[in-house]
Amino acid sequence: MNQTYQPKTWLGQQANRFAPGLFFIGLVLLWELICRFGNVPNYILPSPAAIFMAFFDVEFSRWLTHLWATLRVALMGFGLSILIAIPLSIGMMRSELMNRVLYPALIVIQSTPVVAVAPLIIVLLGTDDPSRVLITCLITFFPLVVSTTTGMLETPPEMIELSQSLRAPRYRETWQIRIPYAIPHIFSGLRVSITLAIIGAVVAEFVAAEEGLGYFIQFSTSFFKIPQAFAGLIFLSVISLLLFKSIQWIQAWFFPWSLPKKK
């Protein structure tokens, strides 16, 4: 283990403690300075100040509308992909045939750019939430399937032998041993998926939507309101970050044992 740097003075300690925040603030300041003194126009790279002002160009209630539209689609798509991915992984773990048949199909789905099939989905499912939810689901479910399957296969073989020696029913092997053992893997899959869910919702909004942050960004760009588009982007990053964090909180709250041990 490498030694963590421990500053001696009080000021040093504070600086060390707030280092990530200070780094971020420094970055923003640098950005502002480049924009100001480099005479970079807003339509090329908006300055942080211009982006900040752009937040107030849009009514707060409109921000909430767009935010909610994106969040709603992202969460529904994410939820749907959990509902599909976990039973699918269990099925593929239990049945070798299912595994052989489905895995190549899943890889094909995963490697198809969703943007390319999105118009098709819109034609089939209409321009409302169902299409956007499906697009989000298609983007998010693969990492979940992979992580859940990996997790269940990484159960210690002795535990499976214990289960067999007890002649326990297989569903209990799945529920009481394999799934709990897969929890850490499932959660790393969930963390990847939740950020992809936001991307999925935005991609879907690029194809068809009347509201949402993706729509808003596209819309702002079409009016060359670049600072406003950046403000939308910042909202997107903030909700991605919060969702990512909430997955961690859920894991820490409900499955504290599944976290790596702190030394």
């Binding site: 210690p156 002795e158 535990m159 032998e161 214990l162 289960s163 007890l166 092997e173 041993i177």
Partner: peptide
């Protein structure tokens, strides 16, 4: 009854529940 090389206790159960696990499982 089998005892393995590693204890292989289930990390999400208390010691008592781990001991009772064979019944719960069977």
């Amino acid at each position: 009854g089998i005892v393995f090389q590693k204890a292989n206790l289930l990390p999400w159960l208390t010691v008592r529940k781990n001991v009772l696990f064979p019944l719960k499982h069977k």
